[in-house]
Design a protein around this nucleic acid. Structure first.
Length: 272
DNA sequence: AGTGCGACCCGAACGC
DNA sequence: TGCGTTCGGGTCGCAC
């Protein structure tokens, strides 16, 4: 589930539910999720509280008193708010209990997600955050910036759109959607893009992501996204997961190929 | 430096 | 039905 639009949705919902509540206890069931020292992790969280939640690319940044808790959902990470008395179910790996008898529970079927606690003053030195490129709505994300980043890259543009150090927040779904909207073949070498194509990528990224945020993100594979909230953007997808279905623009069958190891959907008539 | 690929995990979907 | 295989919404580390 989690690209920028989904992480933004999670952030907004969590902000309504967990801010300024005292943390009573922390239970770590699967410890590899956490990249910090486990005792330290618990010690800093207990009796602390979340003051705010921010986002950078696909990273969630939970603000504590003197620390940030960084959380990346990777492929299938989800947060749920539950009653502390509810039984702990399979794939719930980290349980943060508040003093009002509710829990924030981190659920991750594939265990790919990561969490890390850092001191606030270390944020400028935190590589995971600092190497994030420009966000789609950053006004300094210009066609010249993209053109410059792409100019030495012989890899497919699809792969470059997934590079978080260039544009931060696009994932496999929206990368396909942005390329379709921009009429660019996913296999085109990044260095071959024109300034106009770079501009189209920016505009379409903004359009698609803002619409996706409005719809609460995308739910595929028929299971609920974080917090049991189902995103609805899957109803707006033009190419992703639509192999052999007709292109909405030209009627041609949508193709599915592998690009850089990732499944990639496109229309070979509209995206020459 | 840029690129390609296996690894990390598990369950659903697929093929026979 | 049952069983083995493939695949995936993300990123990192390593080899070339």
């Amino acid at each position: 589930m989690p690209e920028l639009a989904e992480v933004e949705t999670v952030k907004n919902i969590l902000k309504e539910k967990i801010l300024n509540k005292k943390i009573k206890s922390v239970e770590i069931i699967y410890s590899k999720i956490i990249e910090s020292d486990l005792d330290e992790f618990k010690k800093i969280l207990i009796n602390n509280e979340f003051i705010d939640i921010k986002r950078k690319g696909k990273w969630l940044i939970f603000e504590l008193k003197d620390h940030y808790l960084l959380s990346h959902l990777r492929m299938e990470g989800k947060y749920f708010i539950k009653n502390s008395n509810d039984p702990i179910i399979k794939h719930e790996h980290i349980i943060i209990s508040f003093n009002d008898n509710t829990d924030l529970r981190y659920h991750d079927t594939r265990k790919f997600g990561r969490m890390k606690l850092i001191k606030k003053e270390d944020l400028p030195n935190t590589i995971e955050i600092q190497k994030q490129g420009k966000e789609p709505f950053d006004e300094t994300l210009t066609k010249e910036y993209l053109f410059d980043k792409f100019k030495n890259k012989r890899i497919p543009i699809k792969t470059s759109l997934l590079d978080q150090e260039i544009i931060s927040g696009l994932g496999n779904i929206y990368a396909d959607e942005v390329l379709f909207a921009s009429k660019i073949n996913p296999l085109k070498e990044a260095k071959e893009l024109t300034l106009e194509e770079c501009q189209n990528i920016i505009i379409n990224s903004q359009k698609i992501i803002s619409k996706a945020i409005e719809m609460g993100g995308t739910t595929i594979r028929s299971y609920t996204s974080s917090l049991g909230v189902k995103g609805q953007y899957q109803n707006y997808l033009k190419v992703h997961k639509r192999e052999n279905m007709p292109c909405e623009k030209c009627g041609n069958k949508i193709k599915k190929i592998k690009v850089g190891g990732r499944s990639t959907y496109f229309c070979d008539q509209c995206q020459k």
